[in-house]
Design a protein around this nucleic acid. Structure first.
Length: 887
RNA sequence: GGGCGGGUAGCUCAGUUGGGAGAGCAUCGGCCUUACAAGCCGAGGGUCACAGGUUCAAGCCCUGUUCCGCCUACCA
């Protein structure tokens, strides 16, 4: 019999064809005017410079599952796509490409450079979007947004101006984290701390008058050139004599004072602290209190400044070496000890970050954080898995002001102008023409741009047209859920909460689903430099998109990282192929539309699979509603492969081939059609392509599967029913088949050899059930004869098994090895005895009988009863085998 | 320094109110049974990190120990 499907599923052509079809037919589009329930997700905007990695693949797959699922449930779904402009990263990329041509951005000037970046974006910016499409992402692409677009830029300015006017944005001189390579300030979050085996240097600072002097300890000796004091604790007896004394700063000859400050930790190092106000945040604070000068000895580019005297022009690390050499020569380097401490690195280029004194813009975060904290505590927004709420709380409670200015050119230029006459600062949406104070027209816009995360923080409402009161906002804000990795919980989620609450007065999302990080098979973070990256696009080429999506979904357990290896993807590719072949088989028998068929003449397997279908439908809905993606994938895998394919299809083959009459053939086809139909819908959110392809070939399935209706598990609406009797009966039938297969396997009997079996049972119901379904047993256990009896003698040359109330005797004339059979039975009996011992121990325990729930006690008694009967039946047969052996 | 997560079969991991230890892969044995060898049938394999405690009952709850990972932090 022919099938309309080819042998073996070939994903690539299929994926291309259906994605184009979906887009062409506008099936991803949200409606702004619909009375269906609204469901919305904004995409975590990937960097426009980005290349798709596994983290994106997981993130996109999970969102796509939710969106496709909600569409099947009848919701009006908006999945808002877009990218962010990734200020520092993009500027770095473009600078690098220019420098390959021998061009420095300063030669070009700001305006030309920004033009170049836009050009770059036009050429390469859609690359990541096209990759998202390869994953099957059903975003509403017509609404795609970019953080540097006109509309979003307007939102950014508006927010900046309002926060400034409300006193929540301020400008000031502070020590910030500075990347000397990117030449910009960084927020605290943008610094990655790494444990570093460094060195603690002990240096003698001689008294200007007299002998000796304090010894200070430092990990960064080059900063001593900028020291303006040595601080000791006022109550530290060791240094009481130094109070008010002057020191000669080595290598510079400058005179600096000894000051007293309780900040100094007497227990650390020598208890004497060198103070470098321009290059350390704590020293800056001490310097401010004691009115110390703060010379900058390290320049913004990491090169020593004029203030560093003869070290001017040296790189900061070269300077460190030089300073140490000179100190040693002068006999001032007293002690050198190894010391493990954290060193900050730039999260974009990994250069060692330098604390740097400069003028920056900050967001006052406390007032914003309070509301963001409250929103989660009160349940307005829910974080899943819940454990992340603790991290969120801790961060919000200890939040520090956010440095938002960056000294780069690519980004939203800060809408602040300074009057060059009177230094008045103006912050406004539009460029002012005159200074309101002195009326000068010499106004200079602040050259800095805003942190990219500042614009990302507005994403849930800026993408929907804010500050205008759009239909989109009314329909889809707050969004339903945000799906993202924990690595940007603070960078992004926390800040969206703050901004959303501030400007929309509502949380930006009801749920936040935090998913795992994808790692390599050894649990290492995938990175280009380690060379352990598995490229999703390569995987798609080899195994197909559906295989990748199913794998990621199956591994997306809450609260754990995903260790990915190709081996696993291969396994799930096999599942895709299995589904394909099941459909291929089905189509050999289904040639017409069975959608309207009423179920009648149902066989036991029919009734069973319909119950299972319904159960798995409910399980899937439960799993997706609670973001248990791995359960969703696992339940479907189990159902499709091990129930539908392994059992149901095998059971109904005789019926389908017409061996059991027209009525049963028709019934089997009706049920097969229904189960295939519903299963495709259940699978579609996870594996959209193959399900669409099969759906397309399924008679009576109209339109795209994207427009299908999720099967109901409400009994009153569903054409199929829960059927616990069928499940119970099938359990026995399958147990009988399993028992016979087990004997066949253990006794080493070829599958091609048909067997003769006698089933004895004193239970009439059991006999009846087996009799009713004997054709199924004969077929799947490969029997040539099945007899059923109430009781009787055990025939001589048989192997024995027990399934519930049934004793199964397999005739093995001529091939039985009695020794082998005796061993097999003994093994089985031993296993049962182990279980019985455990149960007896429980039941002999008065505490258990008296205190455990009665249903638990009853269940335990039943179990003991069952095991005892089974063991006794096997034991009787074992005795017989032994007596035969003895003959 | 503070906080969080994890340690379950050879490997990767599930295990949702405490009540008979599971899956996938790998391994071993048997099969080209007309949807599928990317397959079918069968089998073996675990002191649930360690030590205590609560309980009639602990992989699950509590305490301590240990190992691994991550986040966070202004002690030079």
């Amino acid at each position: 019999m022919d099938s309309i499907l080819d042998k073996g599923y070939e994903p690539h052509e299929v994926e291309k064809r259906w994605y184009a079809y979906w887009e062409a037919n506008n099936l991803f589009a949200a409606s702004e005017d619909s009375n269906r329930p609204a469901y919305s997700i904004v995409i975590p905007p990937p960097n426009v410079t980005g290349v798709l990695h596994m983290g994106h693949a997981l993130n996109i797959t999970l969102q796509d599952i939710l969106c496709r699922y909600r569409r099947l449930c009848g919701d009006n779904v908006l999945w808002m796509p877009g990218t962010d402009h990734a200020g520092i990263a993009t500027q770095n990329v473009v600078e690098r490409s220019l420098s390959a041509q021998g061009i420095d951005r300063h030669q070009l000037g700001r305006e030309k450079f920004v033009e170049k970046v836009w050009e770059w974006r036009k050429t390469y910016g859609s690359a990541i979007i096209n990759q998202l499409k390869k994953l099957g992402a059903s975003c509403d692409w017509h609404r795609e947004r970019f953080t540097m677009d006109e509309g979003l830029s307007r939102s950014v300015k508006k927010v900046f101006v309002q926060l400034y006017e409300q006193g929540l944005i301020y400008r000031g001189h502070y020590i910030i984290n500075w990347c000397p390579r990117c030449m910009t300030a960084l927020a605290d979050l943008e610094v990655e701390h790494e444990a570093h085996d460094g060195t603690l240097y002990h240096i003698l600072y001689p008294l200007s008058e007299g002998e000796g002097g304090p010894i200070v300890a430092t990990t960064r000796p080059e900063t001593m050139l900028g020291d303006t004091a040595v601080a000791v604790h006022p109550e530290d007896d060791r240094y009481a004599a130094l109070h008010g004394k002057q020191l000669t700063l080595p290598l510079t000859g400058r005179t600096i004072p000894v000051i007293c400050d309780t900040y100094v930790d007497r227990k650390f190092g020598t208890g004497a602290l060198k103070v470098t106000p321009a290059h350390d945040p704590n020293d800056f604070e001490i310097g401010r209190i004691h009115s110390l000068p703060s010379p900058k000895v390290i320049g913004d580019n990491g090169i020593m400044t004029e203030e560093a005297g003869k070290y001017q022009g040296l790189d900061r690390f070269a300077c460190r070496a030089a300073v140490l050499k000179d100190l040693e020569a002068a006999g001032l380097l007293i002690k050198v000890e190894s010391y493990n401490h954290g060193v900050g690195h730039c999260y974009r280029c990994h250069t060692v970050v330098e604390p740097n004194l400069s003028k920056q813009w900050f967001v006052k975060t406390k007032p914003l954080a309070e509301k963001a904290l409250e929103a989660v505590k009160s349940g307005q927004a829910k974080i899943v898995p819940e454990k992340w709420e603790g991290d969120y709380y801790q961060w919000m409670e200890n939040i520090r002001d956010w440095c938002i200015s960056r000294q780069i050119w690519w980004g939203h230029q800060i809408p602040a102008w300074t009057c060059s006459q009177c230094n008045e600062i103006m912050v406004a949406l539009e460029a002012p023409t005159h200074c309101p104070t002195c009326n000068s027209s010499h106004l200079i816009q602040d050259p800095d741009v805003l942190d990219t995360w500042f614009s990302s923080a507005l994403w849930p409402f800026s993408t929907m047209g804010w500050p205008d009161e759009t239909h989109l906002l009314k329909t889809f804000y707050p969004t339903s859920v945000l799906v993202t990795g924990f690595d940007i919980l603070f960078f992004w989620v926390a800040r969206m909460m703050m901004m959303g609450l501030r400007f929309m007065d509502q949380v930006p999302f009801h749920d936040v689903y935090i998913h795992a990080l994808v790692r390599d098979e050894n649990g290492k973070k995938m990175s280009k430099s380690t060379g352990n990256v598995i490229d999703p696009i390569d995987i798609i080429k080899t195994y197909g998109t559906d295989a990748l999506r199913f794998t990621l979904t199956a591994f997306a357990a809450q609260g754990r990282d995903i260790k990915l290896s190709e081996k696993r993807i291969e396994g799930y590719r096999n599942f895709i192929n299995k589904l394909w072949n099941a459909a291929r088989f089905s189509f050999m028998h289904i040639q017409e539309d069975h959608s309207a068929a009423a179920f009648s003449d149902l066989s036991l397997p029919d009734r069973w699979i319909l119950d299972r279908m319904k159960t798995v439908t409910r399980q899937l809905a439960d799993a997706l509603d609670t973001y248990r993606f791995n359960d969703a994938a696992g339940d479907l895998y189990q159902f499709v492969w091990h129930e539908f394919c392994d059992w149901y299809l095998e059971f109904i083959k005789p019926a389908l081939y017409g061996n059991k009459g027209k009525a049963e053939q028709q019934s089997a086809k009706n049920v097969l059609w229904r189960v295939l139909h519903d299963t495709l819908i259940l699978l579609h959110p996870i594996i959209p392509f193959i399900t669409e392809e099969i759906w397309d070939k399924l008679p009576g399935a109209n339109g795209s599967i994207m427009q299908a209706t999720f099967p109901s598990f409400d009994d009153t609406l569903s054409p199929i029913a829960f059927d616990p009797d069928a499940v119970e009966q099938m359990t026995l039938v399958m147990a009988v088949i399993n028992a016979i297969r087990n004997i066949r396997g253990e006794m080493g009997i070829s599958p091609s050899q048909a067997l003769r079996v006698l089933i004895q049972s004193s239970d009439e119901k059991t006999r009846h059930l087996i009799d009713q379904n004997q054709e199924f047993i004969v077929n799947l256990a490969r029997l040539n004869d099945l007899a059923i009896a109430a009781a009787g003698e055990k025939p001589k040359a048989t192997a024995t098994a027990v399934a519930d109330q049934a004793v199964i005797l397999v005739y093995l004339e001529g091939i039985i090895d009695f020794g082998k059979e005796a061993a097999r039975l003994e093994k089985e009996i031993t296993k049962i005895n182990v279980e019985l011992e455990k149960l007896d121990k429980k039941l002999n325990n008065q505490g258990f009988i008296n205190q455990a729930k009665p249903e638990v006690v009853d269940k335990t008694k039943e179990q003991r009863q069952g095991y005892t009967e089974k063991r006794d039946k096997l034991a009787v047969n074992l005795e017989k085998i032994k007596s035969i052996q003895a003959e």
